[in-house]
């Protein structure tokens, strides 16, 4: 089991309502989530804006500390580990970000961007590893000398993927990574991710608001609504017969490229 998540709760202080003296009232963002993520699965996390999808992702990578419940990653309880204690685990989980323009350092070349987490984790043969990572995402080796602004949106997102897989992690979190791309680059990135998951035996959590994309890529789906899991299960079953009213509402709202769709 890659993740066992039990009654996960997370609240953040609402600074807009903080009194002059004393603590700010807290907003409950995740309200007791329980689910397991088996190894090798691709989990789609879907929900409307403000449903807590990104917060859940960040809690799974321990970029946020939960206020209740616990998260077990690969057999270790990581719920309240300190930054130092987390260090050895950190390289086992990586993240790919939504906006590659703001998550790639504009002043460094692609090669340096991919090598950085390798160096931090004390790895050797950086050059070979970078070349390998570029090759795996289908970019020629000379792209290592380019700057992010010289790449197209789809190519930048490939660099983000290369940086994440270079460490050979067990788990990757992809947060809305295709929502800024055109359909054609989106199709390329999705096909690439699917192949990488198979080749490297990755476990992937894929956050998206687009159920069409989720169906294409994911083996399991988790539907979040206002910080609560409304439905979780294998992709086929969920699309064949969605149980929760909110899931049906989400599905019905998607405009299909088909003028005969009943969209009332």
């Amino acid at each position: 089991m890659m993740y066992r998540i039990n009654n996960l709760q997370l609240s953040l202080p609402d600074m807009t309502r903080k009194p002059l003296l004393g603590a700010a009232p807290r907003i409950e963002i995740l309200k007791g989530l329980t689910f397991d993520l088996p190894k090798g699965e691709v989990l789609g996390i879907v929900g409307g804006s403000g449903s807590g999808k990104s917060t859940l992702g960040r809690a799974m990578l321990r970029l946020l500390e939960p206020t209740g419940g616990n998260i077990e990653f690969d057999g270790t309880d990581i719920t309240h580990l300190s930054e130092n204690q987390l260090r050895p685990t950190r390289k086992k989980f990586q993240m790919i970000f939504q906006d590659p323009m703001s998550s790639l350092n504009p002043r460094r070349r692609v090669g340096g961007i991919i090598a950085c987490p390798l160096r931090v984790n004390g790895m050797d043969n950086l050059g070979t590893r970078v070349t390998e990572a570029l090759e795996m995402v289908g970019l020629p080796n000379h792209f290592g000398n380019r700057y992010p602004h010289e790449l197209s949106g789809g190519q930048r997102q490939r660099v983000g993927i290369a940086r994440a897989i270079a460490l050979r992690p067990d788990f990757i979190l992809a947060d809305e990574i295709v929502s800024g791309l055109d359909v054609s680059s989106q199709a390329q990135v999705l096909n690439l991710l699917e192949n990488l998951v198979k080749e490297l035996g990755l476990t992937l959590a894929f956050i998206s608001h687009d159920l069409s994309v989720i169906r294409r890529l994911c083996t399991r789906v988790l539907v979040l609504h206002q910080g609560v899991i409304v439905e979780e299960g294998p992709t086929e079953a969920l699309f064949a017969s969605p149980r929760a009213a909110y899931t049906r509402q989400l599905l019905n709202a998607i405009p299909l490229p088909n003028p005969h769709q009943r969209w009332a």
Binding site: V183, S184, S185, Q186, A187, Q188, L190, N191, D210, L211, S212, V213, I214, R215, R216, L217, E236, F239, L251, I254, L256, P257, N258
Partner: peptide
């Protein structure tokens, strides 16, 4: 035609996507 083929639809169970 290529743009249409690259657009994902949740109703297609094979979900194959062809980039342009």
């Amino acid at each position: 035609a290529a743009l249409l083929a690259a657009t994902p639809t949740y109703t297609d169970p094979t979900g194959s996507l062809t980039p342009v």
